[in-house]
């Protein structure tokens, strides 16, 4: 599904791994952290505009945190949200942007074990944090019990709210807020599911909470 079939066209002869690695570096550079020479992949070099990229921000904040057990030391625009840093900088696109307004929960991640909406917090505020995103839940290919329960109980349809729901569910269970169906409904109401998969979400949280 999310396999190469959907990537190939524009890549031409550039292989995916190096393209995406370069992408990370070039974005880093453009954010003003690096002033080194070009990192634009050759395949695209002939289409690059003549003007050198202008640094995007005059000031850069130094931040270091760990995401899913991997330490990242970044220099970034201090105005960037944690969500944008995940999605556009670290390429952890499992965390979703639904509203960018703190109102939907699609961007929920765990920061030091607590669930927060990553669109409403600045990345620069989280130095030293231990962050968990949807990509970090499964270990060695084994799904987290909450992930398994979401599949088993049809806790999603389109899947876009799902990473946020699952992370939120992990938080909800850890907080001890999964004691009854009503409690689950209440404490999971910060995560909107427009597909309306709520009954499945509740069943999944209850199941996973029981197993833990």
């Amino acid at each position: 599904m999310s396999d190469d079939k959907y990537w190939d066209d524009a890549r031409g002869d550039v292989d995916i791994a190096s393209t995406r690695a370069l992408s990370r570096r070039s974005v880093l550079q453009l954010a003003g952290a690096v002033t080194a020479s070009t990192t634009i992949p050759e395949a695209f070099a002939n289409t690059t505009p003549a003007a050198a990229p202008t640094p995007a921000a005059a000031i850069a904040a130094k931040v270091s945190f760990s995401v899913n057990g991997v330490r990242h030391s970044l220099e970034l625009d201090p105005r960037q949200s944690l969500l944008d840093v995940m999605r556009e900088r670290l390429e952890l696109t499992g965390t979703k942007k639904g509203c960018n307004q703190g109102a939907c929960g699609a961007c929920t991640i765990l920061v030091n074990g607590k669930r927060i909406v990553s669109c409403l917090t600045l990345a620069a505020m989280h130095s030293g944090a231990e962050i968990t995103t949807i990509e970090g839940l499964a270990s060695n290919g084994d799904l987290h019990p909450v992930q398994e329960a979401f599949i088993k109980h049809e806790g999603f349809q389109c899947g876009y709210c799902t990473p946020g729901q699952i992370i939120s569910a992990v938080g909800c269970i850890a907080e001890g807020h999964a004691g009854s169906a009503e409690e689950i409904q209440f404490w999971m109401s910060g995560n909107i599911c427009r597909c309306g998969a709520y009954p499945g979400i509740c069943a999944a949280v209850a199941d996973a909470a029981g197993r833990n």
């Binding site: 999310s2 393209t19 370069l22 992408s23 634009i40 839940l137």
Partner: peptide, 19 residues
């Protein structure tokens, strides 16, 4: 299901390109 619960399912904005 597995792609959707692991964050591996890619939606349009997630096909980041180099440069």
């Amino acid at each position: 299901g597995r792609d959707k619960v692991t964050g591996r399912a890619l939606y349009a904005a997630e096909f980041n390109q180099s440069n």
